[in-house]
Amino acid sequence: MLLEARDVSFRYDRREDWLLQRANLRIEAGEIVGLTGPSGIGKSTLARLLAGYRKPQQGEVRLAGKPLPSSGYQPVQLVLQHPEKAVNPRWRIRRILREGWQVDAELRHMLGIAEQWLDRWPNELSGGELQRICVARALGPGTQFLLADEMTTMLDAVTQAQIWNAVCEIAEARRMGMLVISHDAHLLGRLCNRIVDIDTI
C-alpha cells in the first residue's frame, strides 16, 4: 500500500501564486513520515490534498495506484489542529464517536477516553480531551493512512505524549502509514522514520 502525491500543484485562486508546485511525496504502509518547514508554504495544503479535501489543479494523488475514492469512508483520514472546530458543537460526544464508525471500547480505552465523557457536549471537554475524540473517530477499521496536521500543537506535553503513544501503537499494530506535520523537531525526531522539508519536495 502506497499513498503518493505525484507532481501536484495547487493554488486557491488563479490570480495567486502557487502554494505547491510539482510537489511529490510518498508514504508507505507502516511508515511514519515527518513534514516540516516554515508556516504558510503549503504543508497543510499538501495534507488536505492527500486526504482528498481539495483536488490539485495539476498532478494527482494516488492510493495504491488508484485515485482516492469519491464516496464512502475515506481510507486517508486527516486530524487537524483545533478539535473544537472539527466536531459539531450541537452533538454529544457519543454521537460524534458514531459518525463514521462505531468507536469500540478498546480504542476508547487506549486513547484514555473516559466513559463519562460520552454524554457531554463538546464545550464541556478540554482541548486535549476533545482531540482524543477526533483521533478515535479517524481511526476506523478502514483507515489506511493517518495524516496529523499540528495535531498536538495546542496541547500540553503530558496529553501530547499520551495521544502519540496510543496512536503509534495502533499504527504499528495495523501497519498504518502516517504523515506528521509539526514545527517541533524533537517531536518529529521521536516519532518519525524519516523527515522531509516542504522546500525539498
Binding site: Q74, G100, R137
Partner: peptide, 8 residues
C-alpha cells in the same frame, strides 16, 4: 468536511 470524509 470531516463528516464527508467519514463517508456521509
Amino acid at each position: 468536511q470531516v463528516s464527508r470524509r467519514m463517508g456521509n
